[in-house]
Amino acid sequence: MARIAGINIPQNKVVRVGLTYIYGIGDKHSYDICKNLNIPSSKRVNQLTDDEILKIREYIDKNFDVEGELRRETSLNIKRLIDLATYRGSRHKKKLPVRGQRTRCNARTRKGKAIAIAGKKITPLKK
């Protein structure tokens, strides 16, 4: 069992892939960790020694914000924009795209699934 940065227990994966299951660590960071701690790319998470796990934990603590800490930081940044009553804050509040994308169509990632407008008639197809 490898517990790194709280709750994450990726098993049976190559270390470089397993580490990306931690929120805040992607391909780049996990590659850097493996490189700096001299972990071979063929090694899997359940083959790690206790010493290596400890080293990874320390390395992450030292260098990156991860999981809860990172989530808090991002949500604080968004909250700041909303409290200041900026345009970007208002877009966050309304759950619409923040960076000037169109909203006439698409933008479904931010808007969520499409909701049908009640009472709108479907125009019959012309022959």
Binding site: L84, A85, T86, R88, S90, K94, I117
Partner: peptide
């Protein structure tokens, strides 16, 4: 202007569009 606003642009605080949405019946 408060201290937090430093670094933003003035226009960010003055919306140019009116937001409308559908209201329930």
């Amino acid at each position: 202007i408060s201290e937090d606003m430093v670094g933003h642009k003035l226009g960010e605080f003055s919306p140019t569009r009116k937001f409308t949405s559908h209201t329930p019946a």
